[in-house]
């Protein structure tokens, strides 16, 4: 369900860009961070086979994130306003690299990159949420995208509990980062459920 929600979020995002011929309201910085997240995490495509499902999803996430970046940077460039997308990504990249160096399952390059990608994914939404807060409002379709994206990691949580009791395995890095990631959406979810799903416009209180 988490993976399908993640997949759905990307489909909704592409649908929003296509139908409105615009990437207004979407943070380029957040989208660029996702490209970095997928590239650093899915390097193991080249040597670690899990399943056709796993491989297909990895390829889709890399390809679609690069494609969204292309749409924003070239095809719909005039519709993107960098003056409101001002979050400093350096504040995220540095700490995530440090977290990757401290918390990893083996002190080697690919494992550090994997851990870095987990931490970076947890906070990659911040430029987008920062932008949302600056503008104070969003199109309904953009909020559906964010809701699906936020629900994705939240839906992994029951799976981790299941695997703890069922398979007796736990991945503390993924669990802690996943809880942080979900936590960052709580404010958004509150407004989404109390306004957008009640048919009102997404507007933040002044």
């Amino acid at each position: 369900a988490g993976d399908i929600s993640h997949l759905a979020s990307i489909v909704i995002l592409l649908h929003k860009i296509y139908t409105s011929h615009s990437c207004r309201g979407i943070s380029f910085k957040t989208q660029a961070l996702y490209v970095l997240v997928f590239l650093t995490r899915y390097l193991d495509l080249f040597w670690h086979w899990v399943s056709l499902y796993n491989t297909a999803m990895k390829v889709f996430f890399i390809a679609s994130s690069v494609y969204v970046l292309y749409l924003m940077k070239y095809k719909y460039r005039p519709t993107h306003d960098p003056s409101i997308d001002t979050f400093k990504v350096e504040y995220l990249l540095g700490p995530c690299l440090i977290l990757g160096l401290i918390f990893n399952y083996e002190f080697k390059f690919t494992e550090i990159l994997w851990s870095f990608s987990i931490w970076l994914e947890a906070v990659a939404i911040l430029p987008q949420l920062f932008m949302l807060q600056r503008t104070g409002e969003a199109e309904a379709i953009t909020t559906h995208y964010l809701a699906a994206l936020g629900a994705y990691r939240a839906l992994y949580i029951p799976n981790w509990i299941w695997r703890y009791f069922g398979d007796n395995v736990v991945d503390p890095i993924a669990v802690v980062a996943g809880l942080v990631q979900t936590g960052l959406y709580l404010d958004f979810f509150y407004v989404y459920f109390t306004k957008v799903l009640q048919g009102q416009k997404f507007e933040l209180p002044a």
Binding site: V50, M57, Y105, N168, V169, V170
Partner: peptide, 10 residues
């Protein structure tokens, strides 16, 4: 084995 180091999730 309690620590999952096998990368089988996305």
């Amino acid at each position: 084995e309690i620590l999952r180091t096998e990368k089988d999730e996305l």
